[in-house]
Structures are given as structure tokens and as C-alpha cells.
Design a protein around this nucleic acid. Structure first.
Lengths: 103, 103
DNA sequence: TCGCTTCATCGCTTTTTTACGATAAAGGGT
DNA sequence: ACCCTTTATCGTAAAAAAGCGATGAAGCGA
């Protein structure tokens, strides 16, 4: 409402809210949403599988996967010459619960 | 997994998933997350209130509000010379339920 | 009607994101 | 050791988003 005082009251986000926003940003791109859904339906899949399914170059898919990894939504483990990706269930659960109790 | 067939099977997003991604993108910016939270705590507030609270110029806040409006998360009604903003509760509820049942 | 207030939009610049080809790293098979 | 497969990263170009001052529209009060 109207802030008649002259104190510079800020409304900064909490660390959790910032993390949440970061995750939202990661899923706020159609290609990454697709990757996320694909991983939820096809756990333990390989980068190449995503490339086959998406209309994007390998480098681009790799980049999107990095965004999802940095957001904590996905984790990839090196499996021989390939990299096996799957959802980070713990963080995904956290994400859901945060959204559920928002705000 | 491995798709040995040669059918160009695509994994397009559904309309709902696209809408969801659009909403996520809107909240995937710290300033807009702040606006969203502020609106949840201060319903029926005016653009100027947000400007006072955020470290951004009027034009920028207006632009962020438009993004939130376009995503359906917020709605603004003209109230005299001002514009009164509040959360679009219906769409917010839809958003939450979608995330809850994801995927 | 004349200001005053409130806000959205326009025009512009700067920054960030997206996308891709080319290159490099790294394991597995022969 | 050599090649083949699978990926990540680098460099770069194009597109999108963020941010702001200036301008204009629109209501309210005197």
C-alpha cells in the first residue's frame, strides 16, 4: 500500500524464492519443458535420445541440459562414453512443494 | 530410450504444457517473482506501490506487469486514473495444480 | 477548462539467451 | 595404438529480453 515513511524498505526475495525463480526460468523454455517431460517418461536416457526427439542441434540440446542441471532439476552421470540423464527427484519434489505453498 | 524406428516421432508439448511453460517463464525473473509475492501480500495495489518497492523505473515495472498479465497470472483493472492489480486466482490455482501433477 | 496524478506505450540501447558448426575430451572395442 | 561413438565446450551470429527516458492518454479535482 502507500509507504508514507521514508525508510527504504525493500522486499528482496528470500534465498528459497530466488532458487524457485531460477528453476521456473529453466522450465520457462519450451525445449527445456520438453526435455523435462521426456526425462520423466524415459528415465535414465542419454543425450542422443533427446537429440533424436528434439528439432535442435546437439550443441543446443547440451546447452539446455546444462541449464536444467544448473537449476538442479536434472542430474547427469557419466556412463562410459555417454552421459545418463535423469530428473533430480529430491529437488523436483522441493520445487513442487514450494509452488504448492506459494505464497 | 533408443528409437530404432525411422518414424519421425515428435514429442511436442500439449497446449497446457505450453501455457505452463509460459507462466514459468513469467515467474522466472526475480523482479516478477517479487511483484507476484507483493501482490499476494498486498492485494489490490497500484502500479506506483510496486515502483516504490522495486529498484526499477516505472516503465520497467509496467513492462514486467504486462508480462505477468500476458501469462495470465495477474490482472489489472482500471480504477480511475490508476490501475489496480491483483493475482488472477483462477489461473494461479490452475498453475499450482498443473505443477502438482507434473508429470 | 486547466492542471495534477497515474500509468501504458514508444523508441532506443545494453545485456542475455538461443542456436549452431567446429573442435576437443574421453571411454570402448578391435 | 587406432578408430568409432558420445558429449561438452568454444566461438560467433541472430534473436529476444531488460531497462529507461520521453511522450501521450485518461481520469479527477478545482
Amino acid at each position: 500500500m502507500n509507504n508514507t515513511t521514508h525508510e527504504p524498505k525493500t522486499y528482496d526475495l528470500t534465498a528459497d524464492e530466488e532458487r524457485l525463480s531460477h528453476m521456473m526460468k529453466a522450465l520457462g523454455h519450451p525445449a527445456r519443458m520438453q526435455i523435462f517431460r521426456y526425462l520423466s517418461e524415459n528415465p535414465q536416457c542419454i543425450t542422443g535420445d533427446l537429440v533424436d526427439v528434439l528439432p535442435l542441434a546437439k550443441a543446443t540440446v547440451s546447452q539446455h541440459l546444462k541449464v536444467l542441471r544448473d537449476a538442479g532439476l536434472v542430474c547427469g552421470t557419466i556412463e562410459g562414453p555417454a552421459t545418463c540423464y535423469c530428473l533430480d527427484c529430491g529437488n523436483v519434489a522441493w520445487f513442487k512443494s514450494q509452488v504448492g505453498s506459494m505464497f
